[in-house]
Nucleic acid binder design. Structure first.
Lengths: 145, 145
DNA sequence: CCTCATTATTGTATGATACAACTAAATTCG
DNA sequence: CGAATTTAGTTGTATCATACAATAATGAGG
């Protein structure tokens, strides 16, 4: 059993994650969680905490707080659901969209700086392998749980 | 300017990180931070909080607490530095080593499960691209800061 | 309508982290 | 030498991310 790649991946992944999270904290306006939530709302449209929590693999209470924080900042609006009066939709605002785009730009720019000497092929492969990893995990998770 | 790979990487990275951190919390005995600190001590030998903090890109106070927690669990020993009586070395114990190895196995096993259908070539490339990313970031950081 | 399920919020707890204040020891320099 | 400064480490306080448990309000099925 060839463990070499496995060990390399495992080691590199821990470093990779630490580094990215620390860098984000230093340079980004939006918190990581806020960024991800806004991105979700922007990409997939308004949703309630339950479905957001499911999509983001988080606890409902976590999303509830994060959404409340975004409402506080006027980045999202909490819209009552007329059909089910327990439920709400969180909808990204103009302001939220602007902030999201601003942060995306910043992130892309930073990433571009890091990868500036990579070949197009490397970047392409890296993106696809990360994607493949995520897809694999999703598939496996859906089969279990 | 071809942004496609960049955007893919950026998106996939956020998901990748979230997923891994959540999975770790569910399945691992050691906290992420404890794992990384133990791995550091095991790979590079005893060290004080200052140098550990530098190596791990963390604040000294953060490492101080993490190290204290490991001492508490008997995974490391705090050894006085006879030359400089302000300073200490943290040294991994037998127990700590066992716990580390146990956790490594667990992590490798989980990763192996996820990547079981990947080709050897894909795994190899993925590991190297992650490594390359980390090295690139290190180089750029050393040039600045 | 009464019970049970569901949507969301809030209380409480933990982990990871940083900055600032502090202690004790070492170093430097007049 | 001795005062002033620097250095290694710890501890207080604060923030963010997260989960689990308890609770409130509403909906749905018999």
């Amino acid at each position: 059993m060839s463990n070499e790649s496995l060990e390399l991946i495992e080691q590199q992944v821990t470093d990779f994650i630490r580094r990215i999270i620390l860098t984000e904290k230093r340079h980004d306006n939006l918190d990581r969680s806020a960024y991800i939530l806004l991105r979700q709302l922007s990409s997939y449209g308004p949703a309630g905490v339950k479905s957001l929590a499911a999509d983001l693999h988080l606890d409902i209470s976590t999303v509830s707080r994060q959404a409340a924080a975004l409402v506080e900042k006027k980045y999202v609006e909490k819209v009552a659901n007329p059909i089910d009066r327990r439920a709400y939709f969180y909808q990204i605002t103009e302001l939220g969209l602007n902030e999201l785009e601003e942060n995306k730009r910043r992130r892309y720019h930073r990433l571009a700086g890091i990868l500036e000497e990579w070949t197009e092929d490397e970047k392409e492969k890296f993106g696809h392998l990360l994607q493949k990893y995520n897809q694999t995990v999703n598939q496996k998770m859906n089969r279990k749980e």
